[in-house]
Design a protein around this nucleic acid. Sequence first.
DNA 1: ATGAAAGCGCTAACAC
DNA 2: GTGTTAGCGCTTTCAT
Lengths: 350, 350
Amino acid sequence: MPTDRPGPQTRPTVHDIARAAGVSLATVDRVLNARPGVRTGTISRVQQAIDDLGYVRDAAAANLARQRSFRFVVLLPDRDTGFLRALRAEVAAARPHALLDRILLEQRDVAAQDPQAMVAMLDALADDRVDGVAVLAPETPQTRDAIRRLRATGARVVTLASDLPGSERDHFVGINNLAAGRTAGVLMGRFIGPGAGRVLVLAGSMLARDHAERRLGFDRVIQSDFPHLHVLPTLEGRDDPALIAAILPRALAAQPDIRGIYSIGAGNRGLIQSLRAMGRARDLTVVAHDLSPQARAALTDGTFDAVITQDVGHMVRSAIRVLRAHVEGRDIIAAQERIRIEVFLKENLP
Amino acid sequence: MPTDRPGPQTRPTVHDIARAAGVSLATVDRVLNARPGVRTGTISRVQQAIDDLGYVRDAAAANLARQRSFRFVVLLPDRDTGFLRALRAEVAAARPHALLDRILLEQRDVAAQDPQAMVAMLDALADDRVDGVAVLAPETPQTRDAIRRLRATGARVVTLASDLPGSERDHFVGINNLAAGRTAGVLMGRFIGPGAGRVLVLAGSMLARDHAERRLGFDRVIQSDFPHLHVLPTLEGRDDPALIAAILPRALAAQPDIRGIYSIGAGNRGLIQSLRAMGRARDLTVVAHDLSPQARAALTDGTFDAVITQDVGHMVRSAIRVLRAHVEGRDIIAAQERIRIEVFLKENLP
DNA sequence: ATGAAAGCGCTAACAC
DNA sequence: GTGTTAGCGCTTTCAT
C-alpha cells in the first residue's frame, strides 16, 4: 500500500533559469540576491522563470562559492555554577562541528558582579566585526540598550536561558520559565499531598529574569491548585554554599511546618550539603533545577524528589543554528528550536 | 575577560595535501576515499600530509561534486492512531527540507493486520535501490530476518519508536521505553499517594516491543517503590473505542478499589470516552502516552493526570540525520539524537 | 544594465 | 599507479 512517493526529480539550477529568462548567469544571480543594477523588466522575467521552474537555491553550493565564514560569540557570566560549567563545555564541544560549517565559535566570560562589564563587552563586539552573539545577561536597561546597539550594527543576537524582552534580540534560546515554575509547583503540590504546610523557596538572585519567572509560575500554581500550601518569601543564597549553610537551618528552624523546598536556580551544592548535614534530606520534598552531577546524586539518594532541566547541548546547538539562519536570512524550524522543560525523577534518570 | 577565541584560520584543501605530499589531486582523492590503485608508500605519504596539515574534508563541497542523492523510505503500520497520524504529518513536513539536502523521502503504509505484508515490503525494498529505511514494525523473527536481508544489500536501517534488537538495524530512533514505563510508574505511585489500591493497565497490543517494555518498567517501579499498589493484568483494547467502552466498565466494576489507570499505548480516544461516560474522569489517576489533541484535552479537563510523550518531529528529523550519517559513513552527535521522555501535566502543556 | 569567465573544494572520467 | 581535466551549482570580478 504505497502512500507517498515523489518522482525522481532533478532540481533546476541557475543555468536553467538563465536559459528560460534569456539572460546570463550573472543577471540571475543579481536577481536572486536582490543586488542592484538590473532593469525592472528583466527582474520580473527572471522572477517569472524562477517561479515557473520552482527553483530553490542550493545553499551548500552558494556557501561554497561565497566562501563566507561566520564569527559567533557566546557571552556568559563568569560564575562557576554547574549550569554555566555545562554550558561552557557544550560550547567547546560544538566548536569543531561548527568549524565544519565555517563557523568560528568563541566563548567569553564576563564579570558577573560588575554590571558595566557586560555592557562594555557588548559595545566592544559592536565595534568588532562579529556576525552573531548569544548572551546570558541579567535584565537591566543598560544591557537592553547595549544589545539594541549591537543589533544596529547588523549583528544577530540571541538571548540564552534568560530572556531580555524589549532588547530587540532576534530570538530567545531557552525554556518558558513561567511554565517551568508551574511544573515545579505542580510536582511539589502533588508530591507533598493533601496535608497543609509551608514551602521554602531558594534562589541565587531575583535579578535574573528566568528566576523571577520561575518563582511567579510556581506561586500561581500553588495558590490556585494547592491552597493548603503556603509559600514563603524567597531566600537569596547567592550560590554561596557557606551562606546557604548558614541561612537554611535558621529558616527551617523558624517555621516548624516546612514540608518542601523549591530551589529555583544556582546553589544546589550548598543546599544539598546543608540538608544532609541537618538530616533533613529525606523528609522534605525538594524540587530543583538543572541536572548537575550533584543534583543527579541528590536525586538518586532521595535528597531531591524532582529536577527540572533544560538540555544545555540542545541550547548551544540551537543558538548556533538560529544565529546562522538569521545571518543567512533563512527561516528556522521552530519545533526543532524549542527547548524542552525536562522533568527528571529518580526513576527516569538518563 | 576573553576566554576562548580561535584565530582566523583557513582550512587546508585537497590542493594543499597534494602539494605537501607531492602527488596529484586524483591521488589525494583516492586516499581520502579509500579507493584502490595507490601504492602503500604513496598512501602513507598522503596520510602524513593530511595529518600534518590537520585536513578536514569539506562535506558540502564533496556532496556537490558527487551529485549524490539519497532515497529514504519510512515504513509505518497502516493504522489510524494519533501517534501514527502525527508521524505521517512530520514525515510530510520534513520532505521539503530533506529535498534541499538531496534526500528523497517516501512514506509507505504497510498492512498492520497482515504479518507478511511488512516482510514483503522490506524484501521489495531490498530489490529496489534504496539508501535508507526507517521502520516501525512488530517484533517477529520474520521482520528481524527481513531487515537483516535489507541491510545486507547495503541499505541502512533504523527502527522507529519500537526497537528490533537482533535485527542488525543501524540505530534505534525512540525513547527508552523501559524508562518511560518507570516514569509512568513513579508518577502513578506518587500521584495516588499512600493509600492502597489497584491499578488497571490498558494497552493496544502486547506484541509491540515498546508496549511490553513500558509495562515491564511500570511494574518494576510499582513493585519496588509502591508495594501498596497492585497492578492488574493488561487489558488489550486493540485501539478500538467500542471494544474499550465495552471492557473498561466491566473491569472497573469487577474491582471496586481501582485507583489508577495506565494507558500504555494507542487507544486513548476510547479510554477518554468511556471514563467520561462513566463519570470516573476525575477520581481516577490516569497516566497515558502520546500527546494527541484528545490526550491534550483530557489533560486540560483533568481526565488525564499525566501524559508521557516522545517528540515525533524530533524522531523524524533524527531518523533522517542518522540514516544520512550512516550512508555517508559519518559519526552522529549522540546527544542530538537522544529522543527525550517528555512528561506533561496540565500545568506545563506547551 | 548585462555578460563571459574564473573559481570555491571536491570528485570522476579518461589519459598516460 | 598516477595525473589531467572537466565539471557540481553558485558567486564574483572585470569587461562591454
